[in-house]
Design a binder for these strands. Structure first.
Lengths: 195, 195
DNA sequence: CGGTCTCTTGACGGAGTTCAAAGCTAGTGG
DNA sequence: CCACTAGCTTTGAACTCCGTCAAGAGACCG
């Protein structure tokens, strides 16, 4: 269970974790289980946890004034997901997080997160790298959104995340790319007839 | 000079800086001067510094396959600007950073940045918060880009950053918002006639 | 005062949206 | 185990916002 997280950390920071640290982890993290369509965090409420997905998949979304859903982020096994703003500030969440499948996570509340950062320097470093990477990737994604047509956006996405294409419904991928499901359907049709 | 940074740190982390730390700063940071249109970092080369702007303004941009420029980020007095990916990884920068006016910055290279984080815990914390905030804001910006028409995007931007509207050329603001200068011109016309 | 850079305006075109309806597909209950 | 339903995907036709191309007006700098 915790093995996935451990290997994830080691891969990210490029060094192996001392044995002692693992037991500290086990104490801080606790498992949670969600069924498909369960809500991990509701927009407006305080997001008390960051979740590390060990099984299944989730996504976060923003609901706009018209009530339309806009997918923000997907998470599969080995991904963290949360409303970071709410988690850190303690204010109401902007996004809702929902399970796409039967999902198991390791949850960490703010206090435990602090403790993990304070007592396990490697974890502190790990999380810093994670956010830096997420920030850099996001900046690039926005730049692409503003400069490239939807077809190329989809191609890049499917090359980068073939696993997402397999497991995440098309209408959510469309939403994530900033287009309508109908448009993505037409794009996919175009792509298959091209080949 | 360094006062601006000091007050910036104090405002961000919500506590005052011990006297001793300031002198450490002065040793690590060094001043640089740029004229309008000078390049702080060129895409493709390694971005060796993060810059804290004390006077003037800059922007970072991505040049796409067609040679078109896409504004990524603006920086005025009190803002940090860099190609974070390149700075951290030591690989070639994705973005170019250019001065929009005569600009003075405090520069910090990787080694000095490390030293600052290691010896000044407050600085470490400050930078973590900065990136977290930037990440959260960016995520929200992308969500808006994908859900809101250009007019509202511009209105939000001008409400949030009236100082940017004053000092940054309109064609760059258009680029930042992901639209063409002509479109922004028309949007602005619409808005004035509406009132 | 001439040249370059920025902003504006007009006409047209195209990528993606909207509205609507019909196929699919997977999950549910009988 | 099949039938039914709800949700997802596909397809068509009309529309809309923004992009493209082009030209002119204004501003700024040497």
């Amino acid at each position: 269970m915790i093995e996935l997280l451990k290997s994830n950390i080691e891969r990210t920071i490029g060094m192996s974790i001392p044995e002692g640290n693992c037991s500290v982890f086990s104490e801080l993290l606790f498992e949670k289980h969600f069924d498909k369509k369960d809500i991990l965090t509701e927009a407006g409420t305080i997001c008390k946890y960051i979740y590390f997905i060990t099984e299944g998949s989730c996504y976060s979304y923003l609901r706009d004034d018209k009530g339309d859903v806009h997918a923000i982020q997907f998470g599969l096994e080995g991904y963290w997901i949360s409303d970071l703003y709410s988690f850190i500030s303690g204010k109401g969440a902007v996004y809702t997080i929902e399970a796409l499948e039967t999902t198991k996570v390791l949850a960490l509340n703010k206090e435990q997160f602090q403790k993990a950062c304070d007592t396990i320097p490697i974890f502190d470093k790990y999380f810093r790298i994670l956010i830096q990477n997420a920030y850099v990737a996001l900046q690039y994604r926005l730049a692409k959104t503003n400069s490239v047509e939807a077809e190329k956006l989809y191609l890049e996405f499917s090359n980068l995340h073939p696993d997402f294409i397999q497991r995440i419904p098309q209408y959510l991928i469309a939403s994530y790319l900033g287009i309508k499901p109908q448009s993505l359907s037409r794009i996919r049709k175009e792509l298959t007839t091209k080949k």
